[in-house]
């Protein structure tokens, strides 16, 4: 059911952003699956079976991203997800990713508590998507509120969808705005 056309991975080390370099560079990354959109060019009322079919892709993409980052699951401190739907599709086709992408990534990372923040749009080949990142256990951890710009040259074509997962291994490289600290999470309710 899933026609996987292309897999794109991105990993980056931010050594500094014109301030004092932290002891460890910040490593962030994205994995993108470009699939054929089975609903391109038509209105399909029943999307739920496809959402189930995407579950293995969520797991696979999360594992590929860990491999691209070269880290084990416990090293991941922030995450997010997104989708870019090609021009012959609709935003709802991107929304299909919420469950399989979010739960897939949380399953691979272990018992993370926070909702996986997300964004989506309909876009042309090479469109950029700013995917939000938050702390994996508490959405309000201010140092980990971040975003990663994701873009795959040449994709998605009109009949394709780009499903995206992003992860980071730490806070923003020069974070200094206070708020809830990662080591001060209290409620363990996924938010604070």
């Amino acid at each position: 059911m899933i026609e996987l056309r292309r897999v794109f991975t991105h990993a980056e080390d931010i050594i500094h952003e014109f301030g004092p370099p932290p002891p460890q560079p910040l490593r962030r990354g994205a994995a993108v699956a470009i699939i054929q959109n089975p609903f391109a060019g038509r209105f399909e009322p029943d999307l739920l079976p496809f959402m189930d079919a995407l579950k293995p892709l969520g797991l696979d993409l999360a594992r590929r991203l860990l491999a691209a980052l070269g880290v084990a699951a416990p090293a991941v401190q922030g995450y997010g997800k997104g989708a870019i739907v090609g021009s012959a599709g609709e935003l709802e086709h991107g929304a299909l990713w919420h469950a399989p992408g979010g739960y897939g990534m949380r399953e691979v990372l272990g018992d993370t508590l926070a909702i996986v923040p997300s964004t989506k749009k309909v876009g042309a080949p090479g469109a950029t998507l700013d995917v939000p990142l938050t702390h994996v256990n508490a959405s309000y951890v201010r140092s980990h509120l971040d975003a990663l710009e994701v873009r795959v040259p040449g994709a998605p074509a009109a009949d394709e969808i780009a499903y995206i997962l992003v992860m980071s291994t730490g806070p923003r490289v020069h974070e200094r705005l206070g708020g809830l600290r990662a080591d001060a999470i209290e409620r363990w309710d996924g938010q604070r």
Binding site: R5, R6, D13, H16, F18, P25, Q36, A68
Partner: peptide
């Protein structure tokens, strides 16, 4: 003096 290092892999499984 490197500020940022980025590595990407593009894997093409189906074309046309």
């Amino acid at each position: 003096a490197i500020r940022k290092l980025v590595v990407q892999v593009d894997e093409i499984r189906i074309e046309m």
